[in-house]
Write a protein that binds this DNA or RNA. Structure first.
Lengths: 204, 204
DNA sequence: AAATAGTTTAACCAAATGGTTAACAAATGT
DNA sequence: ACATTTGTTAACCATTTGGTTAAACTATTT
């Protein structure tokens, strides 16, 4: 019947584990805490997912799969570079506002276990920027945008979109503002980031 | 005599703790591992620093104090905005190449303990961007740079400089390159980042 | 209704972990 | 020389933690 929001034990666990893992990370999270959050016994966690490691991987892959397709979709669409940058920035920031722990969680765990990323790259649907690269190179060649390496532009796009979330505590400190004002700045970035990037690369 | 490189036990410990904490974080680090790294007994850690928490705080503050003054110095210098952006980017990236774990360590721990940042803000020498803010507003007013909020420009500068380090594993995966090629990209960013920013804001 | 398979729990366990203690060694002062 | 402080260690301890077991409970099948 209700396929969208099934409250089976398994998805309950995944949901609870997501909350705890994203707040505390793999090493910081306790199985007991996840069990409590899910309102079940600790042994039941091991019944559904054999170990902490396997539970973590299930949560991580699910989290990653929420972000990767977005990137893929935008970057491989048939629109112009400028449109891609606008769409990606707006979509990504809107999405992450709803899942604020996500980027930090993924970055932290990827840094903790460098090999982990090898695993992800192999999976289908892992973002591939070759199309984007070609597009940038073409537009540099025909004089639409300034001379820039596609890789550098890509890094810049990711940096400007993702960093404000992972660096939020630091930035709030530096700028000396509270949550409310900071969220307002983030909100503005839905369009401001693309404007900034386009100004940086566009010729006339 | 040798004030620069004293190899007293205390600084030995701090050095070992820095290595372990920066790689594994506060929760992931083990006191035994730090003791081993320092080549001493575990009890000696507690003799010098009473607890893991206090040892961690000592390491963290030392790490933070390596980054903050740099930012302060550049941002409060008497040079033009463009010079500031150039200097900061070049200095920061050069510095972090030598201490690659530093940004991720600080960001991670700041995210883990949101209150911690309150502590840092109070300390003297904590970066203050008010001078930078005024400078940006002036330059917007006199038509030197495009209309942009100083806060947004500041976030962008930080993002473009810091993110390539904390997001390295992810970016290497997306761009599909190895360490060597990625380090080369980072090297280029010493100048490329400032060019990008200046292009984004400069009018003619 | 009896048997079977699937789900959930309380109690338990071994290993790991931060921290302590008490004894020992090395400086340091008198 | 002796006493006192400072530095260092091995052994120990209480607690936490991931994981297991066996029993109980529930749904499904026969």
């Amino acid at each position: 019947m209700n396929k969208t929001k099934d409250t089976t034990t398994e998805s309950n666990i995944l949901d609870a584990a997501k909350n705890i893992f994203q707040q505390k990370g793999m090493v910081g999270a306790r199985m007991q805490e996840i069990a409590d959050e899910a309102g079940i016994n600790k042994a039941l966690l091991h019944y559904y997912f054999r170990s902490k490691q396997l539970l973590f991987e299930a949560v991580f892959k699910k989290a990653f799969s929420m972000l990767a397709p977005q990137l893929n979709e935008v970057i491989n669409s048939e629109t112009s570079i400028f449109e891609k940058i606008k769409n990606f920035s707006h979509n990504y920031i809107s999405f992450v506002i709803k899942h604020p722990y996500l980027p930090n969680f993924i970055l932290q765990e990827l840094n903790r276990n460098q090999d982990f990323v090898q695993n992800l790259v192999k999976e289908k649907n892992f973002p591939n920027i070759s199309k984007f690269k070609k597009q940038v190179n073409d537009k540099v060649a025909d004089g639409t945008i300034r001379n820039i390496k596609a890789e550098q532009l890509f890094i810049n796009i990711m940096a400007l979109n993702i960093f404000p979330f992972v660096g939020a505590p630091l930035l709030k400190g530096f700028i000396n503002i509270g949550d409310k004002e900071y969220n307002q700045l983030i909100e503005e970035r839905k369009t401001a980031v693309a404007d900034f990037i386009i100004n940086a690369i566009k010729i006339n």
